[in-house]
Design a protein around this nucleic acid. Sequence first.
DNA 1: AATAAGGTGAGAATCGTTCTCATGACATCG
DNA 2: CGATGTCATGAGAACGATTCTCACCTTATT
Lengths: 132, 132
Amino acid sequence: MAARMTRQRTAVVEALDELADFRSAQQLHETLRARGESVGLATVYRALQALAEASEVDVLRAEDGESLYRRCARREHHHHLVCRHCGRTVEIDGPTVEAWASKVAAAQGFDDIEHTIELWGTCADCRAASAG
Amino acid sequence: MAARMTRQRTAVVEALDELADFRSAQQLHETLRARGESVGLATVYRALQALAEASEVDVLRAEDGESLYRRCARREHHHHLVCRHCGRTVEIDGPTVEAWASKVAAAQGFDDIEHTIELWGTCADCRAASAG
DNA sequence: AATAAGGTGAGAATCGTTCTCATGACATCG
DNA sequence: CGATGTCATGAGAACGATTCTCACCTTATT
Ligand SMILES: [Mn+2]
Ligand SMILES: [Mn+2]
Ligand SMILES: [Zn+2]
Ligand SMILES: [Zn+2]
């Protein structure tokens, strides 16, 4: 239960706080390395796991299956619109889809509904940068 | 381009046609093995890949990251309500969410929008079987 | 049958993630 | 202080789904 605050965990949380976008464990590890905060890769994974379980970070799967982590502003349930090129993220509220999801599932006699709703696209900056 | 009809591809398609639920490549491989239709695992992956590209099968990611495949009745875009216990699947139409997704993304200046929308729950049969 | 274009499969290679285990940090108790 | 129990760390091994390699079959087509 404890969850001791160690130099390593502090470093991971701080790095997340400074980053606005979803990042992989390996990217975070590299970032920490680069600033001299040496933290083992396994430790980064463990810290992220703990944070995810405590709902302190959101996790989502990139198309290639890699897990991406982000410290969102909101603790409450929400979804994301993510740029697949730069990772830029917008938090999304979806009262409309929330209602739709539970209605549809109930109509089919399903219980304990969960939903996965994520939007991917190309942000304005990335569109401008790549073509015009 | 060709896409020759080989014994192996036929076997994969037939197996998919007989299964109502989402299955992994490895499960399909095992199923084929069990019925004496010997097909290499790599070939199963390649067949599923080709079918997915041709929109003949739908692919979704299980929570552990494994890809699951299903030959849906509908060829058009749709979503799924899946029982997390038995894999029972209901195809879902979502004009409401389709509209919501593109509106939200456009409002943020995003292009080339894609969305992931999947519903997970416990089907009526599984609820009845487990408790009451 | 000859041939070109694909397809196949056993095993190696990838790669993100998890596990192992010896070592280190910390708090508590006496 | 020194002993002790608990949790954390990290280098590298292990895992597991998927992809790649490459020598060898199949299938269309002529
Ligand atoms: Mn929601
Ligand atoms: Mn849709
Ligand atoms: Zn972008
Ligand atoms: Zn069920």
